[in-house]
Computed example of a mutant assay.
Amino acid sequence: MKRRTFLRTSVAGAGAIAFSGTLWEGAALAAPAQLGPGPYGALQAADANGIQLPPGFTSQIVARSSQTVSGTSYTWHNAPDGGACFADGSGWIYVSNAEIGSGGGGCSALRFNSSGAVTSAYSILSGTNRNCAGGKTPWNTWLSCEEVDTGYVYETFPFGGAAVRRDAMGRFNHEAAAADPVRQVVYLTEDKSDGGLYRFVPTTWGELSSGTLQVLKAGTATSGSFTWGTVPDPDGSPTPTRDQVSGMKIFNGGEGCHYAGDNVWFTTKGDNRVWQLNLANSTYELAYDDNLVNPGPAPLTGVDNITGSTFGDLYVAEDGGNMEICLITPDDKISVFLRINGQSSSEIAGPAFTPAGNRLYFSSQRGTSGSSSGGITYCVTGPFRT
């Protein structure tokens, strides 16, 4: 894909900070990312945690499901999934969803000091169902999304406060969310084989209690232009939201979602793709397709959560596959950043960078046991490009 210069935005605190960098050009004729050497070098032998990393990077375990978080009295939740980091003075907070059904879901938080040590751990949401992914807002809340057909979005407060259900954001099989402070909307993925890509337009930016739910409309091709259509009944009953708007573009199993500088990237697990919306010119195209990597083999399968660094690299986690986090660079090269060994019955979830960009948090949802009670949350530290 061709590029042009842009200002990419990164939320820190309650505002947006601009960084110089590059942006996918909205040329729908360009090819998706191809194999290339990673910016950090080849993976080394697995460390004591079973993680293969490039030279100069190290991993540590910060929490285990069903076990007390070190230095606290809090028991870390099962099946850790989507997550995000928030600046907290000289430290930071990492939040993590619990993908447990039957009212056992929710979200927990880990508070770290400036040296990366845990100082506290606590719940910010409980009693919900299959909280899979979500998204961070510019006003420092976390949108925790329920991955069930009648799922809601809950706005949670990592710095304190009771979670609030945001009914106006629609009732469907939610997955991830990404806030766009320029257009003052929130993009939402839907984890269904015939799902849509939505955006919520709040009546007042920064307040999600009311607004309009819309869904992307486009043709059946893998690139082209798009528009938005209003969903008449966001409650999705009796007609599901994805069946209410004629011309809605179908995406096969929407997963992670990431916004940066007039672009949204989101993943679809049903066809192992990463999509890109150029919001400046209302076009869409493929940023990655495992069937279009030539020569192969394709490094990224089981695409799931996605995040980005301040440099502009995209990090995509695998649900299954080889238990890898893969990296797509600004020059459209894809490589493996890390690989977890001995956990083939798990998935990687919740990748998120600290505000400084030098630490990456993520979880293995079922760890070595293959059970939701065996989840492991990690931190990787090293010379990330910023």
Results as ranks from 00 to 15, higher is better:
S70C: 05
I17K: 15
D167Q: 09
R111I: 02
R385T: 14
V153R: 04
Q244Y: 11
T5I: 12
S115K: 15
L208T: 00
G350Q: 05
Q365M: 12
A317H: 06
L327N: 14
V182G: 00
V185H: 07
P297Y: 04
G196R: 04
A298E: 06
F157M: 12
S225H: 08
G219A: 01
W24V: 11
Q67K: 12
G91C: 08
G135V: 00
G270W: 06
S102V: 11
L23F: 09
I328M: 06
D235N: 12
D233C: 08
I100D: 11
G105E: 00
S371T: 15
N173G: 00
I376S: 03
E146D: 13
R359N: 10
A179T: 12
T203F: 09
E99R: 12
Q214R: 06
S66H: 00
A356T: 15
L286D: 01
I100P: 02
C85E: 01
E146H: 13
I334G: 04
T68W: 10
L292D: 13
G321I: 07
L338C: 14
S65Q: 08
N322F: 10
R8M: 12
G89I: 06
Q52F: 01
G83P: 07
R385S: 14
I61G: 05
S96W: 11
N278R: 11
W76H: 10
P355K: 10
G195R: 06
D47I: 01
P383V: 02
E155S: 09
D88Q: 13
S282T: 03
Q184K: 13
P238G: 10
N131M: 14
S144I: 08
T203C: 08
T204Q: 09
S90C: 12
L208H: 04
L338G: 03
C257T: 08
N291H: 13
W205N: 01
G135S: 10
Q343P: 05
D304F: 02
S115G: 15
V186M: 11
G357A: 14
L286E: 01
T283S: 07
T75R: 15
N272T: 11
L35F: 09
L279P: 03
A98Y: 01
T368Y: 14
G219M: 03
F311S: 15
L29A: 14
A27Q: 12
G89Y: 03
R165V: 11
I340N: 09
A352V: 06
